[in-house]
Design a protein around this nucleic acid. Structure first.
Lengths: 328, 328
DNA sequence: TAGAATTCGTTATACGTATCACTTCGGGAC
DNA sequence: GTCCCGAAGTGATACGTATAACGAATTCTA
């Protein structure tokens, strides 16, 4: 047991020859000038000598908060969420908050099991939205990239604009038959992509769109792209909801003897490091994931101070590389 | 603040017309038959009505433990650590423990800031070993893939055997000049790979080995591989410490007009999903990361019961695919 | 120099839970 | 009818911290 035999503030007090409250005052640093420099020094030395560290559970109970925030993500494997973490952790650290990650739902497939710790707040990916039904108590919450009409404050990407740009890019190149490898995920941001894409296509005379859902993996990307590219009236451009799916689409094109971008243009989403390593380099959408994390954390901090944060909308960027070209 | 105004066991007691201790006994479930069925039912209904959940901080203080374990990993992006998490979380859940992830060092580059929560134990990757110097108190610890001679119990891969197999595979194909793209990380497991590889080469008359350190990224893999493949006496096989580096090596070979595996054989480490998606498919080493996680968690649970766990050694598997062939 | 203000420390208390020690009550056993 | 025992519940307490309330010196003010 971690607690057994560890020094407490009382032990420090005894060694320093002062009262426990004095120890607390010195070490918390919140009472400048409240204790004389010499006693403070004695206390600090005693604490050092015993290797004293405050008991977090006791502190949390006393203060009613933990200065720790939980980030709920659907998977650890996506670089996207690593970037979200980075942004959120930076802001958190600047305010004396710690940030821990809780993956759910996860490959382990277990039921939701909330950590037994208390957290001051939660940042949750829209893809982990079901986790919230398992939450034990109402907790300040900011959603990531979720339905802005939902109950909790949300930080979003400007999906409409960037998908509009993506569609304009392809349509402007002359493509008229588009295929969409849509994420098989019930989340607002993906539904929004589908809607924006459909709207852009609908605005263009003679343009059509065929959509297939694809669970996220290289293999399913390959399968679904193969299916789309085998249609009688084959799309000349494939829009993929993940870069990962685009990797599968590359493989499908290759196996069908189609060249990229000569016979088929392919686009991704996320701009993972691999996107630039593919041959040809992948045209994709860069989502400012780190900004998403930092803005969400800022919003949560506002919430924790009983202020109502805005619901910022972050610009996403179309990265045009060599996987898109005019149709043959 | 999360604590403000939430119902406590005292509130439940008042509503149910019993004492606080009775509420605790009923809801903890640890006192079968201690309370009559009818009162127990009344208490449960009151708790339900108020939406009562025990305060974790108070419980942790009282019990002196948290039933929560921290997993310290150097990065979230590697699928390897996601698998470790999965294995560890499964075992943890089976014993009523929760597992949270703490990435450090992380891309944010901040100093180590331990979560303000208490954890019963820590699982730490050898690559995050420095984090431990920042640990606030001695805590039950199991290292992942670290120096078995270290102070803490460790779960390891059988590096010697699998790297021996890998070397034998290449040497058996007839390769005599090997290049090693070594991870630029101060960790036992990588040093061990280098040693095992060097030993295998030394056993083979006429065989030589040239080593270059490479920070982990596709781009550095490309650069370092380019450098090795431009040597006057160019290696005919490249051993990479990560699959990611191998991706860069593929690009370097291509840019030099060398075919894989015709002109140069390439191997990786980890067997990430992409390995099979590369062209040609990558020969690599599969590390049973999920087993690593589950075994480490099991060892930690032993440790928490004051038993001394063994230091298991997990077998790794050489996956031969099409990126290795006899030299020209 | 008296009174007031300041300095520096102590004592007491509350946070919410789990559990130990104790009381009360009713039912057998003999 | 007495004694004892089990059942069912209550009261008290401790976990370790932070801070409000208080008090004894000491210094400042006029």
């Amino acid at each position: 047991m971690p607690t057994e035999g560890l020094p407490t503030s009382k032990d420090v007090a005894a060694l320093a020859g002062v009262s426990q409250s004095t120890v607390s005052m010195v070490l918390s640093g919140k009472w400048p000038g409240r204790v004389s420099p010499s006693t403070a020094q004695t206390v600090r030395e005693a604490a050092e000598q015993l290797g004293y560290q405050p008991n977090p559970a006791a502190r949390n109970l006393r203060l009613g908060r933990t200065r720790t925030v939980l980030l709920v993500v659907p998977t650890l494997t996506a670089p996207f969420f690593a970037a979200v973490y980075t942004g959120a952790a930076r802001v958190a650290a600047g305010h004396g908050f710690a940030l821990v990650v809780y993956p759910w739902p996860d490959a382990s497939g277990g039921p939701f099991a909330a950590p037994h710790e208390a957290f001051d707040g939660v940042l949750a990916s829209s893809m982990a939205i079901e986790a919230l039904t398992g939450m034990r108590r109402p907790v300040p919450l900011v959603m990531l990239d979720s339905d802005p009409a939902g109950a909790a404050p949300t930080v979003n990407f400007d999906v409409d604009t960037v998908v509009g740009n993506l569609a304009d890019h392809l349509l402007g190149l002359g493509h008229r038959r588009l295929g969409h490898l849509a994420a098989a995920v019930e989340a607002w941001t993906f539904q929004r992509r589908a809607v924006s894409l459909a709207e852009a296509v609908a605005r263009t005379p003679g343009a059509s769109l065929v959509t297939r859902e694809a669970p996220i993996s290289i293999e399913t990307g390959r399968e679904v792209a193969h299916e789309l590219l085998s249609l009688p009236d084959r799309p000349t451009a494939l829009v993929c909801d993940y870069d990962i799916l685009a990797v599968g689409a590359y493989k499908a094109a290759k196996s069908l003897g189609l060249s990229v971008p000569g016979d088929v243009s392919i686009t991704g989403f996320d701009d993972i490091p691999l996107a630039e390593a593919l041959e040809p380099e992948l045209t994709t959408v860069r989502l400012p994931a780190e900004d998403l994390g930092s803005q969400a954390m800022s919003a949560l901090l506002e919430l924790l101070q009983n202020r109502s944060p805005g619901s910022p909308m972050l610009p996403a960027e179309l990265i045009v590389r060599r996987s898109t070209a005019p149709p043959a």
